[in-house]
Design a binder for these strands. Structure first.
Lengths: 223, 223
DNA sequence: AAGTGGTCTAGACCACGTT
DNA sequence: ACGTGGTCTAGACCACTTA
């Protein structure tokens, strides 16, 4: 509603109209103005100082703040051509993954093994485990826009909420070396991600291995 | 104000009192209730569905959502004893770093070289560049609680806003190998972080190298 | 139809910075 | 003293879900 003002011509470096001014200018109540301004602050376009006023922040970030994106979406953001080879789709049990999710050993997963390409070079291998109850026929489902997340959202109506992600550096093992076409022991990024629905239920666990020289993780943080 | 309700005894798995109920129960207006609820949603304790109600989410996260913490603060969170050896404090020019910050080549930095210990083992080496104009006598300033961020906040009144952080895996070079006591070419995490004040001005640039086997990055993301 | 969350209004008082 | 953002009130109407 108000976002236009800042995105557009207003990009000076300094003072922004006061809330009372905007209230008059836009003929809406002050609470509404404040909600809109809060969003702009949240997105990093403005900052406010009590008693002084609101100011336009210096423009920022190639990346959104602590935002969860899939590999596909991430690459699209950076305008990199991406492709993905599906090695396997199976329904499996996995005690390890079940434990990580805090669910029963009996629960099945749809396991998806993929190689991720940037351009036509392998950049990562990924093993994804989606809870079978939540996406029953995922094994033979075409992926929406090639993206698992989009598929979960569009086909299964699952609302993805948040994730916890851990990253570490380790030497490539034999399998990884072969798949990524790097020499053994060369540094790779090992990523584990546990994804939850909006209600806090776990949906997905991903184990990925990225080539150290082809991929870097960028993340925005706020204090 | 309201946070007690959820943090405390209310931790069932389901329905939360409606906004109208809470309004009566707490004798505050609905807008106030809604603001409080929004915070709880933001923090991941609740989720809401229009037309259905508010619900208690399954508890989450060892880590805060996309939060910026320093090494010291981070380790304190995880209850790990940490120490830090300061190798060097100098005032320098650095074209590279200046460029990354988008400021003039002429601007000086306070450069701080440190080795970070977990327990008594080296876990990382860090070179930190703080803009000299913003923290003039930082070179001979005692660090508040051993933390640079706390020092910037408390001594210099700088309000840290956000950061962009990139992580990649690479083989240790000769210097890193020696300092971290690992063999050459063993995998390490290279981290670069650019930190900004609330108004968007850059303050700090950090280049860190972490031992791959001693440190893993955990981050929470939301969709 | 009734109950839920989502949005908005038109005021009020407070805390803080600047003058 | 004045202008700023921060918080709150007591209502209203809308969109959506469930029965």
């Amino acid at each position: 509603m108000l976002s236009w003002i800042s995105s557009g011509a207003f990009s000076t470096q300094q003072q922004f109209p006061s809330e009372r001014d905007l209230e008059n200018a836009f003929k809406v109540s002050r609470m509404t103005i404040r909600r809109a301004l809060s969003e702009l602050v949240e997105e990093g376009y403005l900052y406010r100082e009590q008693g002084r006023g609101s100011f336009v922040a210096r423009p920022r970030l190639e990346h959104q703040l602590g935002r969860l994106t899939s590999f596909t979406e991430d690459m699209k953001l950076r305008n990199l051509a991406t492709d993905s080879i599906i090695l396997n789709r199976t329904v499996v049990n996995d005690r390890d993954v079940a434990k990580r999710m805090g669910i029963s050993d009996e629960d099945k997963f749809v396991r998806l093994d993929r190689i991720r390409l940037i351009g036509d070079q392998p950049a990562a291998i990924q093993a994804t485990f989606v809870r079978h109850v939540l996406a029953p026929d995922l094994v033979d489902q075409e992926l929406v826009e090639g993206s698992l997340y989009r598929t979960l959202e569009v086909i299964y109506g699952l609302e993805i909420g948040h994730a916890e992600q851990a990253i570490e550096a380790k030497p490539a093992d034999e399998y990884e070396a072969e798949m990524l076409k790097v020499s053994r022991y060369s540094p790779v990024l090992a990523l584990e991600r546990l994804t939850f629905l909006r209600n806090g239920e776990p949906v997905e666990f991903v184990r990925s291995t990225f080539r150290g020289d082809r991929y870097r993780f960028v993340v925005a943080l706020k204090r």
